[in-house]
Write a protein that binds this DNA or RNA. Sequence first.
DNA 1: GTTCGGATACTCGGATAGCACTTGTCCGAGTGGGGGTGG
DNA 2: CCACCCCCACTCGGACAAGTGCTATCCGAGTATCCGAAC
Lengths: 160, 160
Amino acid sequence: MKLSGGVEWAVHCCVALTGVTEPVPAATLARLNDVSMTYLAKQMQSLARAGLVHSVQGKAGGYVLARPADSISVLDIVLAIEGTEPQFTCTEVRQRGPLAASPEQCLQACAVHRAMLAAEQAWRASLRGVSVADLVATVDRDSGPDVLSRVRGWLASPTP
Amino acid sequence: MKLSGGVEWAVHCCVALTGVTEPVPAATLARLNDVSMTYLAKQMQSLARAGLVHSVQGKAGGYVLARPADSISVLDIVLAIEGTEPQFTCTEVRQRGPLAASPEQCLQACAVHRAMLAAEQAWRASLRGVSVADLVATVDRDSGPDVLSRVRGWLASPTP
DNA sequence: GTTCGGATACTCGGATAGCACTTGTCCGAGTGGGGGTGG
DNA sequence: CCACCCCCACTCGGACAAGTGCTATCCGAGTATCCGAAC
């Protein structure tokens, strides 16, 4: 029940990518956050595979957000990195053992399964309600708009 | 982001333990659910360590619920098995890299951290709102009260 | 001066090792019960 | 017949391996750019 560490990096990168028009290479994003270049590249690949960012190859290549920031939710990023399979897998304990229930008695999910499913739905709904644009607005409100503008400027011409 | 498989077993065992007065050994619970005896014993140990079930040693020993079923939430069981540490660990990316923020600018949690925290709180709240007694009531309503009564009878005198 | 071509350097992408955690298992410590023995 | 004591079988508890997925890394495929040469 632990989130992959790459999720944090991916979300931060999506926030940093807002407002930039030219592609940003993974190496630049890695230097910005001071993290492993190759590993962050892997996370960006996952984002590209999920269609959240658009990757352009070549000399001036890199990553750009594929959609407006207000249409990319944090849930999209988490699912892109972690995978879309649910966190709880019901093994149908009911149908095992000496008091096994018949399959026609198990047409609907068991009570335990439903409780877990409801909790995961709540979790997903909370993450779905926060978009990358919301995060940008929050950062601007908390720390001032110059923080993210400085990030965008650095991404445009990074220091080697 | 995957729950431990033992969580399912632990919840089912807690449901099965409702209404029984004499201690039930881990081996009996394992046979009821047709799962690995030794591994389920490990999960029951975690429940005992968390104070959810009371363990009695000796010849007629086993496990009993330590509290009324309506005061044991599914969240309690999940936390007992998975551990209480939060699923998301913020590595303070803000304070790293060439544009690192100063520590006094990071007095409150960053926007990403707060979004993840809110989602986890929603998840926990959903699980906290479901007690073992609620699960029992749900099973009784769905499949009839005889299902759980048969389970209790089998736990009292199990077939070897 | 303009245009075409190729070499180049830089990018992403998937395939590849290392490590931590979950899964699964085992044996020892402790305890209540049952049977034997003595009164 | 009853009470006491010892042995035992049964239980939990923590310590010990194996498998699986996350972490981290590398090298190859692909492409826009830049430079040079030809027209």
